[in-house]
């Protein structure tokens, strides 16, 4: 057994796991950590742009499938959140790393199913689609692209086994940045919760094409594109 491996016991089973003690292992581990932070930041950016720009600035109210895709992105992001938290605490075992990547994959699969459903709803020639297109693609199509990227990301990390087992930073500034990203992600969930409460009010379900914030009875005027 090399110096970069330790033996642990899972129940009665002896398992040999690598420990990131070498320079190369540490470098890949840190890269793995910041890749998870980048994953979280990317979805924070996507979710914030959808809500603050398209919903609030342009006045385009999200349909039920749009809201479901936001949930899919958050569900998928629970994976990197799990890995980042355990890395920051120094308790990330290979099994935890796999659990986090599993969360990301399963969440992305559900999100992709929702995106594909919405793409199929508007796939007929002549259908204008729902909402504003960005670079020629509607938001639900971009959502599918993002879910496929997540699947590819998790797949590539799994191909390398534990090479990219995330190692949390030791510098106080880097740890502060990482914790800030974690809490900004939580704030993004809270902001979406409040926005959808205003949109849905006390109804059980959203209408197929929402036109007003049910809670306060306000109909926003869509901005001219």
């Amino acid at each position: 057994m090399s110096e970069t491996q330790i033996r642990i016991f899972v129940g009665d089973t002896r398992v040999i796991v690598p420990t990131p003690t070498g320079r190369r292992d540490l470098l890949l581990g840190k890269l793995g950590f910041w890749a998870q932070i980048a994953f979280l930041l990317a979805y924070i950016g996507v979710l914030s742009t959808a809500m603050f720009y398209f919903q609030f600035a342009l006045g385009e109210l999200p349909c039920p499938l749009c809201i479901l895709q936001r949930m899919g992105m958050m569900l998928s992001s629970l994976g990197p959140l799990y890995i980042v938290i355990h890395s920051l605490r120094g308790t990330l075992a290979p099994a935890d790393f796999m659990t986090g990547l599993g969360f990301a994959i399963v969440g992305a699969l559900l999100g992709a199913a929702m995106s594909i459903r919405q793409i199929l709803l508007h796939i007929m020639p002549g259908d204008p689609g729902y909402g504003t297109a960005v670079l020629g693609l509607h938001l639900y199509t971009w959502a599918l692209v993002s879910f496929v990227v997540v699947l590819a990301f998790a797949g590539v990390l799994l191909m390398f086994g534990t090479e990219f087992l995330a190692v949390g930073p030791t510098s106080p500034v880097a740890r502060y940045v990482a914790w800030a990203v974690v809490w900004i992600f939580i704030a993004t969930i809270v902001a979406n919760l409040i926005a959808v409460f205003f949109l849905e009010g006390f109804n059980w379900f959203l209408p197929d094409n929402p036109t007003s914030y049910e809670l306060i009875g306000w109909t926003p005027t869509p901005a001219a594109n």
């Binding site: 938290i85 939580i186 979406n192 919760l193 959808v196 059980w204 959203l206």
Partner: peptide, 21 residues
Amino acid sequence: MDTLLFGALLAAALFIIFARK
């Protein structure tokens, strides 16, 4: 229902942060 599900997602995220198991 959507509001409740965002609440559930918030709870799941907080479980990940504060619960160690």
